[in-house]
Deep mutational scan, measured.
Amino acid sequence: MGFKLLSKLLVYLTASIMAIASPLAFSVDSSGEYPTVSEIPVGEVRLYQIADGVWSHIATQSFDGAVYPSNGLIVRDGDELLLIDTAWGAKNTAALLAEIEKQIGLPVTRAVSTHFHDDRVGGVDVLRAAGVATYASPSTRRLAEVEGNEIPTHSLEGLSSSGDAVRFGPVELFYPGAAHSTDNLIVYVPSASVLYGGCAIYELSRTSAGNVADADLAEWPTSIERIQQHYPEAQFVIPGHGLPGGLDLLKHTTNVVKAHTNRSVVE
């Protein structure tokens, strides 16, 4: 069995187990497998329904001669939608809004960016022009300005110390501490036991640490421990890039980060 097929099978099995364990909360999309990078042309966006009122959005972007996937989250909030992270750029984010209108038909009224990198804030200006209120932590807003990236308009308070959590509509926002970046936030959907790890969490097929220019490698494993301790009931975990899975993604990420750190020390 090929690795790609095995990865998709694991996603399907995880979703099936969740649907059985929580039949009222989960209505997993039966329309197909989780979209992969090879299936999404740059400039297009796919939506994948995880649970009743919960979707991931998947886009792709060219970077350094390669094409990478990027995940975000959409959560229903009454007759409105909360968006977590842009679709990595203005063109993708405009396509995301169009796809949401086509498939869901509810307005996106608020959006949260989970850290300051372009795959999370690139497209904020498109959201703002569409009347979406954009939010991020003060740290993310400051770092985005320093980096020359787009800056969300509103500040999220109460997320300055490791372990801080605040309720934001249908989700809980959690600051686990520094990891992929010093400002990275985690998003949890309690009604569906869905954990969105953003770039602080890796997919299972990833074996290298990737972009760690703004990471705190020493603190990252401790931050992941905080996530595990705060959300032990999480059933569906979405990484910032690639295929979702279960809580095993947290341990896998820790292993990859520690291996990278150990290699760096040896070198």
Rank of each mutant, 00 (worst) to 15 (best):
M1S: 13
F3P: 07
L13M: 13
L13Q: 02
I17F: 07
S22N: 07
A25I: 15
V28S: 07
G32V: 08
E33L: 12
Y34W: 09
T36F: 15
V42T: 09
E44D: 12
R46C: 12
Y48A: 10
Y48K: 06
Q49R: 11
D52Y: 03
A59N: 13
D64W: 12
Y68V: 08
R76G: 07
T86D: 01
W88A: 12
K91M: 10
N92A: 08
T93Y: 00
A95F: 02
L97W: 03
E99H: 12
I100C: 04
I100P: 01
E101L: 12
E101M: 06
Q103T: 12
G105M: 15
L106M: 07
P107S: 08
H115Q: 01
H115S: 01
H115E: 00
F116E: 03
R128A: 08
A130K: 15
V132S: 08
Y135A: 05
A136R: 01
A136G: 09
A136E: 01
S137P: 04
R141P: 01
E147R: 11
N149V: 12
E150A: 05
E150K: 15
T153L: 04
T153K: 14
L156A: 06
L156P: 03
L159T: 05
F168E: 12
L173S: 01
L173V: 14
L173Y: 01
F174E: 05
F174G: 02
F174H: 06
F174Y: 14
Y175S: 12
P176C: 12
G177K: 00
H180M: 00
N184W: 00
L185I: 07
A192S: 05
S193W: 12
S193V: 07
L195G: 00
G197M: 03
C199N: 00
A200N: 02
I201R: 01
L204N: 13
S205E: 13
A209F: 15
D216L: 08
W220V: 10
P221R: 13
P221T: 14
Y231G: 01
Q235M: 03
V237A: 08
G240F: 02
H241K: 01
G245S: 05
L247A: 09
L249D: 02
H252V: 07
T253M: 07
V256G: 09
V257M: 15
H260P: 07
N262R: 08
R263E: 11
R263H: 04
V266K: 05
